[in-house]
């Protein structure tokens, strides 16, 4: 690791300008992903702007919208009373990610900004279009067991590794981003990108911008919900497949439904078609199965991850079944 420069500020505006004016500068929040990437030489910023002192650690309910500061830690968010009561799906997603130690440090904004866990991305001696555009994709034709089945491109089949983001995309969150020109707001579903021909871009944030807050509208999805994560060991592992499912049921008929999947795409994958199918239908196994089938339309596997074509719909069915069964 080069001996980068390190600056600390407690003023958002200062942080923004420090990064905006310097191409080699970047923000550091919890550091749980960035420091790892720097140790492996995947990224080598010459200047770090420590944003841990920024006043972005509030969790508040305002006008039926939950405001979450970007610097709130994953554990603080999971333990928050409002989140537990009104957004338990988010709580489950958060608890499924990483370890207690990492969640204590990892921030909401940092979680959204984390890079893929693709082994070819992490190994600087291997080809990877995301790390080094134009060098090729090691995962296509290589070990791609953990890789994407939706929205892939010829240049990249990596997945976004977050659990939290799968919960957030299901909850119709919005992202508030600050930049030189002030704040802008985008839907969470539009925050992350598909790889396309520019896999080096994970998301739609611009250089010099900073996530300052998330906003989630209150809903009635806090009774019948589930986050089902399938992984190679029981904890502390990235998802093979994960599904966030939430239902609002009226006499076993689905009035509202949210479904999102992790471990399948370059971004948290909202299952809109499956949701549309389920809306207004009875919460039966047959309908869950039909929805899962719809969700899988357009899926494409790459050999090692062929199993996801079966595991993904199965996991959707399981998540919906458990969500429904919750009293």
């Amino acid at each position: 690791m080069i001996n980068f420069q390190f600056l600390r500020t407690s003023i958002v505006k200062t942080a923004l300008s420090l990064v905006a004016k310097d191409p080699k500068a970047t923000f550091i929040a919890g550091g749980t992903n960035l420091v790892d990437l720097m140790k492996r030489g995947v990224t080598a910023p010459e200047k770090l702007i420590d944003i841990n002192q920024l006043p972005l650690k509030q969790i508040e309910l305002k006008n039926n919208i939950l405001h979450i500061g970007a610097m709130v830690s994953n554990s603080a968010l999971a333990e928050n009373a409002i989140v537990k009561e009104k957004f338990p799906l988010l709580m489950l997603a958060l608890q499924s990610g990483a370890s207690a130690q990492l969640r204590n440090v990892a921030t909401v904004g940092g979680n959204m900004m984390q890079r893929t866990r693709c082994g070819y991305f992490y190994d600087t001696t291997m080809p990877c279009n995301k790390r080094q555009p134009g060098s090729g994709c090691g995962a296509i034709g290589g070990y791609n067991r953990m890789h994407a089945i939706f929205g892939t491109s010829e240049s990249c089949i990596a997945v976004h590794p977050s659990d939290m983001c799968v919960g957030l995309v299901a909850l119709d969150a919005q992202v508030v981003i600050a930049g030189a020109k002030g704040e802008r707001k985008i839907n969470f579903i539009d925050f992350h990108r598909l790889a396309g021909t520019t896999p080096e871009k994970d998301n739609n944030i611009q250089k010099g911008e900073l996530i300052v807050r998330l906003e989630i509208p209150v809903n009635n999805l806090n009774k019948n919900f589930h986050y089902q994560k399938v992984r190679d060991r029981s904890s502390y592992a990235f998802a093979l497949i994960s599904v966030a499912a939430a239902l609002e049921l009226k006499d076993d008929v689905i009035s509202t439904v949210r479904l999102a999947m992790g471990g399948v795409a370059h971004k948290p994958w909202r299952l809109v078609a499956a949701e549309n199918f389920l809306k207004g239908k009875a919460a039966t196994l047959a309908n869950f199965e039909a929805a899962a089938k719809i969700a899988m339309e357009g899926a494409k596997a790459f050999g090692e991850n062929d199993f996801k074509l079966k595991m993904a719909p199965n996991t959707i069915i399981e998540a919906l079944t458990v969500a429904k069964a919750k009293a």
Binding site: F6, V35, D36, D50, N52, Q101
Partner: peptide, 29 residues
């Protein structure tokens, strides 16, 4: 492991357990 993947480096910082291998010392001012 030096990469936040094993927990052997766990310490408490202001009472919270963290992986000290992924924390730059200067972030603990």
């Amino acid at each position: 492991c030096d990469h936040g993947q094993c927990g052997a480096c766990t310490v408490h910082v202001d009472g919270a357990r963290v992986n000290s291998c992924l924390s730059l010392a200067v972030m603990n001012e």
